Amino acid sequence: MTVVSEAMPRHAGAAARAATVRRFALTDAVFHALTRASAILVLVILGGVAVSLVVGAWPALSAFGPSFLTTQSWNPVTEKFGALAPIYGTLVTSAIAILIAVPIGIGIAVFLTELCPRPLRRPIGIAVELLAGIPSIIYGIWGLFVFAPFLQVYLQPFVIGLFKGVPVLENLFAGPPYGIGLFTSALILAIMVLPFITSITKDVFDTVPAVLKESAYGIGCTTWEVTRRIVIPYTRVGIMGGVMLGLGRALGETMAVTFVIGNAHRISASLFAPGTTISASIANEFTEADGALYTSSLVALGLILFVITFLILAAARFMLLRIDRRAGA
């Protein structure tokens, strides 16, 4: 009886452990299936978007061929469409916005993590992050009724007079001061993407181990040297992620750009001239597109924006891989 009574608890304990192992195995299998299904769902959605854009854009692409990408004519009456002007406006405004926002955003992140007095860090950080919560249409209204008149009266006449007679720059900043235009749109985009770049850069700066920075300060490095040789190399992947997020926002921004860019389907050498972007063209004209070819041309613009975004992100990933390999070597 004693042997039997001792064997029963052992058997019960083994059965409980086996049940626990089975439960953990089932939970792990369910978790694995859910995560795999989520990843597959993302690919399915991405593929579905791409296929729908290709199908919708095919009538325009087959009608105009490669000239759709090289022509700036956009005439709904004669049904002659070209995407060159929106492509040019999208790339120029986004590039200028990133060139302005990235140095400022990294500078703010360095100030908040290395130089800012502790009582001011949270208020300034919250103020920067609140900029990201402002709706884009508010930026557009502010840009049209406040920012653009300021540029038209004060900044643009000054810049036009400053660069008059200077080769290249004279043409780049020429023309009457409209207030609205490519440059105004780029400045609005820079303000809009700044909080994203700043917030992500600050967060990745906070992940740098304190011992690395303290060691650098201990051997006499300045704040600039610590930032350049320790902080930025350690967080370059995170910084690039913030820049790519800001660039994606700039490429796809619609309402704010529509208010201040001028919505003119033409290419001008001057950054002060009105222009258009892919998103602004689609937003302005999609409700008015009454013909199949007109609608297909607008869908083709969306396909081009999709491809541009994909290529830029792929190039960024390739660049990061090269940087990592070089650092490993």
Rank of each mutant, 00 (worst) to 15 (best):
G248P: 09
M255Q: 09
N284R: 15
I230L: 10
L130T: 09
M255R: 04
G82K: 08
L321R: 15
N171R: 15
N284H: 12
L155N: 03
L305T: 00
I100C: 08
V257T: 08
F173C: 07
F272C: 12
A12M: 14
F147S: 02
G161Y: 07
A19P: 05
P233D: 06
L131I: 07
I104P: 01
F318N: 03
S268N: 13
I278K: 00
I239G: 07
A190D: 05
V208Y: 15
S296E: 04
S270A: 08
P176R: 15
W58N: 11
M255I: 11
G291Y: 02
V260W: 14
G56P: 03
F205N: 01
V51D: 07
S199G: 08
L303N: 05
S296F: 11
L189W: 10
R36T: 13
L120F: 05
R228L: 15
V4P: 00
S52A: 15
T93S: 10
I108D: 02
T2Q: 11
M1E: 10
Y139N: 04
R36Q: 14
G125A: 12
I100K: 05
E129A: 14
L251R: 04
I100Y: 00
T235H: 00
A273S: 14
T287A: 15
Y88Q: 12
L26G: 11
L53W: 14
P209N: 13
T223E: 13
P76I: 00
A15T: 11
I232F: 09
S38T: 07
T222P: 07
L320T: 05
T78W: 09
A216P: 02
P149K: 08
G241N: 04
R118P: 01
V168N: 08
A250W: 03
P157F: 01
G275T: 10
G143P: 00
S297G: 10
A109D: 01
A174I: 01
I312G: 08
T71I: 08
E170A: 15
A15Q: 11
A327E: 12
P233Y: 09
I308F: 01
V54T: 09
P119D: 01
A269T: 07
L169S: 08
L320G: 05
T227C: 11
Y139I: 04
S38A: 15
V49G: 09
A101K: 03
T201P: 06
A314M: 11
V237H: 11
L120S: 04
P103W: 02
A186E: 05
Q156K: 09
A315H: 06
P103A: 15
T207I: 09
T207V: 11
I160Y: 10
F205S: 00
P103R: 13
G175C: 01
I160P: 02
E129D: 14
R10Y: 12
V4K: 15
R266Q: 13
V168C: 10
S38W: 13
A25K: 12
L311R: 09
V260E: 00
V307A: 13
F318H: 09
T70E: 04
I267H: 07
F81S: 03
I40N: 10
I100A: 15
L303V: 06
Y139T: 00
L155E: 01
V128L: 13
K202I: 07
W58S: 10
V44S: 07
I200V: 12
D290S: 14
L245E: 10
F205R: 03
L84E: 01
V42I: 15
P9H: 02
D28V: 12
C116N: 06
L144M: 10
G165E: 02
I160N: 07
E214D: 13
Y88V: 06
H32G: 12
